[in-house]
Design a protein around this nucleic acid. Structure first.
Lengths: 348, 348
DNA sequence: GTGAAAGCGCTAACAA
DNA sequence: TTGTTAGCGCTTTCAC
């Protein structure tokens, strides 16, 4: 049975109101009184019950983050970013995974979050148009990361630019057959990231006068094995690509693994570019388009806290910069690759 | 202003007690009454306030996880494991970072957690003996992951075995000069993992009749850059090692990067073995000692829930298995490496 | 099967 | 500067 505020009051010989004030550092408490209260609280090991404090004050001092998954690099980095600012403000962090429509509905309606958090950050949560509206209409302050929502503050990357930048880099190296490894969602209207990156890829190809070849665009499931499988399928094509743009570094790692298994030189036989700038990317010497993932979490948290503190403001749409980082996995396209390959085959 | 239980009661024409019972699925509610209540609740979009429910019931339906950091792979995987079982039981997850002594003290004393969680899992939190005792004496159910605590339930890996297994593998390949890249904590009594792995390394060397060379044991900070730096220093030794045991895969990645930069063949010139079986390890073909990281999180959560549900039980100490996974970064030691190197130098 | 009422432990007006 | 008191919104006896 932990000590309650009444116990402290009794021991300090003051009222509970004074204990509350003294412990929260409010003004209008005599220094001597405050000292006595602090002493009594310390002696009793008193800590205010968060539920009771929250119930009475209307606040929870907790902010929620909704992610589809916790384990993958991207989400763990966003979480770390949010955590940094949340901890800095002496708030707590509630993490919830939202990976199905029931979860999205609960999130949008505010169910399960009432009395738990003062606001929520939804990271790559593929809400329907209607759910977004519900969330916005909700009394719960919310910020979106990764996906757009008109009437809500968002932290976004220009994913069309991401796709275009990476593709232009490969084009500039002379590649003309460029594989695209991404993710085919059931509903691209909701999880729009792959679709936008693909658009950038198409734009860059078009600008170079290259006709996109649908056979070069494969699903990689945003995972390492998925990337490997996609690369395998691409390389099995009659006219395989000389370069691959993977929509995440993890898929790029899968491509690199497959290339190594096939004995292909990178970038000699195959160039690979990723997206993210994963911690491991530099160690792997992977060319990639970086995004400030942790920074996105921080920005989202700042945005959310501003909404919570200031009440409703105009929903800010923040676009964070991406940047091409050229490293060792991309290089010039061979003038003629197929011949040299035939030669190899002949030798074998 | 969200609807309260009173509003629902009014709309359904029953008392608040009945609403509470009906909504929580308790028995002793007439089906027709329950239906009316559910209908009213749905119409009003009613959700019980978690603070009020918690205050009245004494429970929070939330469990806490304390980690030193959120971003690194190991912690994000443990979190994912915990999250899986927590979500399964329809509980919430509060994440807090504890990375300094003030934080450890707060955690041990239960401060900041009162009224927030029903129990806490501390992952690799380097508590002092005294703090562990405080935590154990606390009314807050707690489970430790990674570090031992006599009077608390723990989920552990046999880290001596981890070090021994990895070292024996290298010895069996003929390596005799084996570098060790780990972490030098101020107080190895508190964060004992590196010390234990080092012990296993020493044991294996001793069993092979090899005298340990302190110059071969370096700090790698459990990070990729740290691993690279350590590898650099090791390779700069007059008699460089032919193999490196890195205490984490991330440090092993750093070693591999450095090796590649130096133009060293792996495993031809240098063998590298890690610990963890990081997602990326397989893609990199890294030999490593795997531990069921996500599983450790799950086990810890199960243990904690058992303590919460069943009250105080004998503190279980669970040891999860580690396993050597031989892949491509380890190979036979060259018979004589130094000579061939001199030749190279001469040519250059 | 249902309701009345007493808290849960705190904060925030309002008095003094 | 300090105390009194009325909630915050729910759960939980205890009656009926």
């Amino acid at each position: 049975m932990p000590a309650s505020i009444g116990d402290v009051a009794e021991h300090a010989g003051v009222s509970v109101a004074t204990v509350s004030r003294a412990l929260r550092g409010l003004p209008n408490v005599a220094p001597s009184t405050r000292a006595r209260v602090l002493e009594a609280a310390a002696r009793l090991g008193y800590v205010a019950d968060a539920r009771a404090a929250g119930l009475a004050s209307g606040r929870t001092r907790t902010i929620g983050v909704a992610v589809p998954l916790i384990g993958p690099w991207f989400f763990s980095q966003v979480l770390a970013g949010v955590e940094a600012v949340v901890t800095d403000r002496d708030l707590d962090l509630l993490v919830l995974t939202v990976d199905d429509d029931a979860g999205r509905q609960r999130l949008a309606s505010g169910a399960r979050l009432r009395g738990r958090v003062d606001g929520v950050i939804a990271v790559d949560v593929a809400l329907t148009e209607e759910q977004r509206a519900t969330l916005a209409a909700n009394d719960l302050p919310a910020v979106l990361v990764g996906l757009r929502g008109e009437d809500l503050p968002c932290v976004l990357v220009d994913n069309v630019e991401v796709g275009r930048t990476a593709t232009e880099h490969l084009l500039s190296l002379g590649h003309t057959r460029i594989g695209l490894v991404g993710h085919a969602r059931d509903d691209p209207l909701r999880f729009s990231v792959p679709e936008e990156r693909r658009r950038g890829y198409h734009e860059a190809l078009a600008a170079a006068g290259i006709e996109p070849d649908p056979r070069l665009e494969l699903d990689g499931n945003f995972s390492i094995p998925g990337g490997a499988e996609a690369a395998e399928a691409l390389l099995a094509l009659p006219e395989p690509p000389t370069a691959i743009l993977a929509m995440s570094d993890e898929m790029a790692f899968g491509c690199l693994r497959l290339a190594r298994q096939r004995g292909l030189a990178v970038p000699g036989d195959l160039s690979v570019v990723g997206v993210d700038d994963h911690d491991v990317a530099a160690a792997w010497d992977l060319t990639t388009v970086s995004q400030p993932v942790q920074g996105m979490g921080e920005q989202a948290a700042e945005l959310l806290l501003a909404v919570i503190d200031a009440g409703a403001t105009a929903p800010a749409h923040l676009t964070v910069p991406s940047r091409l980082r050229v490293r060792g996995t991309t290089g010039p396209a061979k003038a003629d690759r197929t011949p040299s390959r035939s030669t190899q085959d002949a030798i074998t």
